[in-house]
Design a protein around this nucleic acid. Structure first.
Lengths: 155, 155
DNA sequence: ACTGAAAGATAGTAGGC
DNA sequence: GCCTACTATCTTTCAGT
């Protein structure tokens, strides 16, 4: 981690690019009232220093048949680093697993699972997730509706 | 929802752009062995038909001081549509709330909260979230480590 | 649907303030 | 750190298959 700090111009650029990664330098230079070359150099630095990790297209999941989102809370029966690491190694390989976080509290991991429907989730649960070693329990919760889903941090 | 289906070329383009939204048409045309104009037209259609919702820059949250991610499970004390809608309306306004889903099961909503640290979460909890109307309980779980966090659906 | 090529716009670089 | 000006590269359009 470098000691470099970002200023208000950097923050404004990050704010804009979090909303739309395809903005041209020209558009950003117009909004921020700086020259195109300045914007170009700032964005280069923000990437180089790791503030911007990557730019991605966000798809409409219903159009590509991911109608069901589940959160699955997993509890393991032992917490040696070997067991934890093995679970993580195996679970991230499943294409249904969009996210996996190790958590504090009454369970060990929370997974975000995307499937086409309940049948597909059931199949994932029975034939993939529940087959992994050292699982004590899995509790599943399903998304009824998406009120807010944002990738942009307020800056 | 239109009746239009996508073919293998569309799927390959979506796969590529989910990983890197800044790929040039030229690069995609090289990978897919199609002409630049073909790629250009395909991407235009994928956006127009709503497969691609938007393109965004993904930031390194630790560089911008969002070190703590919490999942907060919220239970309300009544489930009239008015109460549900009011909660949703209010909760999405908090900048700490990255995501809000209404859920099946033993609680009503799950929130993903991003703050700088536990003090900031505590402040959010006490002075923002817990002040909303009709809340019965809030249970908070904190991310210890991020094993996988992907925005790209396998296609 | 796809292609190649032209025209217009943008990214990226260099030199100066 | 920011600017103008220049060149390389890319996007976008279109006539042709």
């Amino acid at each position: 981690m470098s000691t470099t700090e970002i200023d208000n111009l950097d923050r404004e650029i990050l704010r804009l690019l979090q909303k739309d990664a395809l903005l041209t330098n020209k558009e950003i230079s117009f909004t921020t009232r700086k020259s195109i070359a300045t914007i170009h150099e700032r964005i280069r630095r923000l990437k180089e220093q790791g503030y911007i990790e990557r730019s991605v297209a966000i798809l409409n999941r219903k159009k590509i048949n991911r109608n069901l989102i589940a959160f699955s809370q997993v509890l393991l029966n032992d917490h040696t680093s070997t067991t934890l690491a093995k679970f993580e190694e195996d679970v991230v390989k499943f294409p249904e697993v969009m996210e996996c976080f190790q958590m504090t509290g009454t369970f060990d991991f929370i997974l975000r699972i995307a499937t086409s429907d309940m049948d597909a989730y059931h199949h994932f649960y029975r034939h993939k997730l529940a087959t992994l070693a050292n699982i004590t329990s899995i509790q599943s919760f399903f998304v009824l509706s998406e009120t807010k889903s944002d990738t942009a941090y307020p800056i």
